[in-house]
Amino acid sequence: MMGLSLFSIAVLLLIGLVLFLYSLPTLRDNNTFHLFFTSSWKPFKGEFGFGAFIYSTLYVTFIAIVMAFPPALLCALYMSEYATSTVKRVFSPVIDLLSGIPPVIYGVWGTLTIVPVISEKLAPHFVDFSTGYSVLAGGVVLAIMILPLIVSILIEVFTAIPKGIREASLSLGATKWQTVKKVILKKSLTGIVATVVLAVSRAFGETIAVLMVCGNFTDIPQSVFDACYPLPALIANNYGEMMSIPGYESALMFAAFLLFIIIVIFNAGSRLVLYRIKKNSQS
């Protein structure tokens, strides 16, 4: 049983090790600077510049966080500070369902609604032409997907704040909103940052939904209406060919390794902060 318990740690290390070993050839044959900052992607010539993919990943994630965070924060504050228990009971399945809907369904929904709206209604005001399969479409779909995660963790962070502190503020004559603004938000700042970091790491790795709406075009997107090509989509789209081109397999595994390392670091950091918050509230 102890062996099994060590299984989790072993799997974590094993994934890192396997991906690292497979990506070694890419790291050896390419200048590290070129790998990260150039975007010439020519697998047949052995040129692997991840610039466009990394940029796309960051761009889509940025849009998703900017769109998801404000409503998620407002919703979480309402649920933890204002809502009656009936409202909470009615609303919690909403969050559960949103987080339970599979990525591929979000992808279908995105191609049916977001993509045509962007290409027909929104993009003509700004650019000459857009298919709708774009950075913005990816960002919107991703925003909805990470929203339930942000809401549920923020509610946990807010409820970890002791009741006494709220009552102290209220009894000094502060209104409820003043209490929220000056006490709750201030107190939970580290928790909020940790939540955002966790959401960012979730957004980095999302594959199918983003792949279905972002266009998958290997070039640096000039505007939010251009197609883009995030790292997970790159891996998912090319696994079929990767065995037939020398060096390609290693390059894709490097992409997976990159995702793995960044996500592990982000996750570990934010989880440690959230643990401490939970522990402090219990003692």
Binding site: S5, L6, S8, I9, V11, L12, I15, V18, L19, Y22, L198, S201, R202, F204, G205, E206, T207, P232, I235, A236, Y239, L252, M253, A256, L259, F260, I263, V264, F266, N267, A268, R271, L272, Y275
Partner: peptide
């Protein structure tokens, strides 16, 4: 420590599990 490592495993995206499984 075990709980912590499962929390991290929980955050790893499915595409990485897929790629890892494929390599294995």
């Amino acid at each position: 420590v075990v709980r912590f490592s499962f929390d991290i495993l929980f955050g790893i995206p499915s595409i990485v599990y897929g790629a890892f499984g494929f390599m294995i």
